[in-house]
Every structure is written in structure tokens, then in C-alpha cells.
Simulated scan of single mutants.
Amino acid sequence: MLLLLAFVLFVAAIAATGAAFAKEPPSGLARALEALERSGQAGHELAEQADQPFADRILAPFQARALALGRRLTGADKADRIRRRLDFAGNPRGWTIDRVLSMKVLCAVVLPVVVVAYGLLLGGSFTVLLVVAVAAALLGFVGPDLYLYNKAAHRADQMRRTLADAVDLLTISVEAGLGFDAAVQQVARNTTGPIAEEFSRVLREMQLGMSRSEALKAMGARSNVEDLNTFVGSMVQADAFGIPIAQVLRVQSSEIRVKRRQYAEEKAQQVPVKIMVPLIFFILPCLFVVVMGPAVLNALDAFNGK
């Protein structure tokens, strides 16, 4: 046993000595070769980084940091609200929840810098620049929300104006003997605008296995147009109770046309009220200057004895 233990210790000592000699620092030539190899790898990495586009090298990391900051600043339910606004706006191409959050932070940072730089060129005071910078930061932070709100309002107005024609085409197609799916396909093919996009999406969802009621409810949830939600509710009830779809479509078409006429009359009655603001602040002052200006100048000349 003692001889075996001594032999094991001897072998371990030889292995440790070999490892120590193997880990000795390299000679001068070896160190130079390793340095050249490392410099070549570093140059290759720098070349690969330089070949990347500017958006991937600079903008992408900055946008990632802005996204992280935006998630911290917004509440936990902000993502659901942004998703709902994107649905109301028609899900613009390239716009996602992460992009909206990052754009809010980027606009809140970039817009004050631009405004302050322009104010410095004009020679503004520190107090004015501070107030303008704060206002620009707030405006930049809510800017993407305002864009989505404007986009949603414009889309809702288009849907109100084209919904009656789409329902008429749907009614004619069903009364001609087509099924509801084929009638929806005719509407999506022969109309344009947000209504055509929504009916096309309903058709794709039904083809993917979603039931008709679920697809129509999803279309109503993606829009804030009251007439469309009423139409969706009627179609879902008709599907649930087995009511003939052609009769429901005929009634809905008549009601939607009446509501569209009432909506147009309401907008026409709002015109005199809305035109008062530009009339008072922009048109009447110019008119007073043109009409009263010569009389005021003549009166001043008369008082001065000229």
C-alpha cells in the first residue's frame, strides 16, 4: 500500500510539473504572433461592424434603450391601450407597441433639443428656452398618441361614409343566392377603404377556422364606429337565433343609410360654429385693417395739421 501511494504521488507530481511548464508564458516570438493574431481578429470585427448599416449600429441600440425607458414610464395597462389604439387606426404598417413606446421617448428627447438649438440661434432667454423645452418634451411624448388618434378618427369617418354601400352590396349578393362567406368576399373584392380591409380580414379569419360570430365580434372590437358595432350585433344575433340573413341585412342597410344622412346633417350644422374661430381671429382683423386703416391714417394727419 505504501509503495502504491508513493507511486501515485510521484505520477501526480510529474503531471503538475508538466502542467506548470505548459503554462509558462510564451516567448517573445510567440507573444508577437499572438498579438498579430488578436489584432487581425479585432480588425476583422471592426470591419464587420463598419459594414453594418447606420440604423443597425447606432439607431437600433438607441431605440432599444428608449423602449426600455418607455416601458418604465408607462403603466402596466398601457400596452393594452396602445394595442387598442393601433386597432382603431387600422394597424399602420410598421407600427407596433414597442415602436410606439420607443417613439414617445425619442420624440420627447429629440424635439426639445431641436427647439432649444433653434432658440439659441434666435437669441432667446434662458427662461423662455426652459419653458419651450418642457412644452416640446411633453408634446413629443404625446405625439405618437396624437398621431394614432388622428389616424383612428380619419379611418372611422371613412368607415361611416362607406359602410352603407358595403352593406347594400352584401344584401344584394345574399338576395342573389350567394352564401354569407361568398357575399363577404364580393364586398372585400369590389370595395375599397377600411371597410374592405375589415371584411377581408373577417373572411380570412373564417377560413382559418374561426366561427362567423367570433370573426364579426373581432371586427366590431377593432372599430369604434357605432353603426358598425350595431351591424355586427345584429348579424351575431341573427346567426345565433337562425333568423334569415337577407331580411336582417335589408333592415340594417336602411337604418345605416338613415344614420349616415343624420351624421351628414349634424356635420353641416357644426360648420357655422367651427368657422367662428378663424373668422374672429384671422379674417375680421384683416378686414378691419383694410377698411379702417385709411380712415385712421387720415384722422392722424388731420390731428397733426398735415
Rank of each mutant, 00 (worst) to 15 (best):
P194A: 02
I195Y: 06
I195Q: 02
I195F: 02
I195E: 06
A196H: 11
A196D: 03
E197Y: 03
E197W: 01
E198V: 11
E198N: 14
F199S: 07
F199C: 03
F199H: 02
F199Y: 05
V202S: 07
L203T: 08
R204L: 13
R204M: 15
R204P: 08
R204W: 15
E205A: 08
M206G: 10
M206N: 15
Q207T: 03
Q207H: 07
Q207C: 03
L208N: 07
G209V: 07
G209Y: 04
M210N: 11
S211P: 08
S211A: 10
R212H: 12
R212A: 11
R212T: 10
R212I: 12
R212G: 09
S213C: 06
S213E: 05
E214Y: 14
E214R: 10
A215V: 09
A215P: 13
A215Q: 09
A215S: 14
L216Y: 05
K217W: 13
K217Y: 11
A218I: 12
A218F: 08
G220Q: 00
G220S: 04
A221W: 15
R222H: 15
R222N: 12
R222D: 15
S223F: 05
S223V: 09
N224Q: 15
N224G: 09
V225T: 06
V225N: 02
V225G: 03
E226M: 14
E226Q: 13
E226W: 09
D227W: 01
D227F: 02
D227K: 10
L228T: 02
L228A: 02
L228K: 03
L228Y: 00
N229I: 13
N229S: 05
T230S: 07
T230D: 15
T230A: 13
V232D: 00
G233N: 12
G233Y: 07
G233M: 09
S234A: 14
M235F: 00
M235P: 00
V236S: 00
Q237V: 14
Q237F: 06
Q237A: 13
D239S: 05
D239L: 12
A240M: 15
A240R: 06
A240Y: 12
A240W: 14
F241S: 13
F241D: 11
G242Y: 03
G242T: 00
P244H: 01
P244F: 02
I245L: 04
I245D: 01
A246M: 02
Q247T: 09
V248P: 01
V248K: 00
L249V: 00
R250E: 11
R250G: 11
R250Q: 14
V251P: 12
Q252H: 06
S253E: 14
S253W: 07
E255S: 10
E255T: 13
E255P: 03
I256H: 06
I256S: 08
I256W: 03
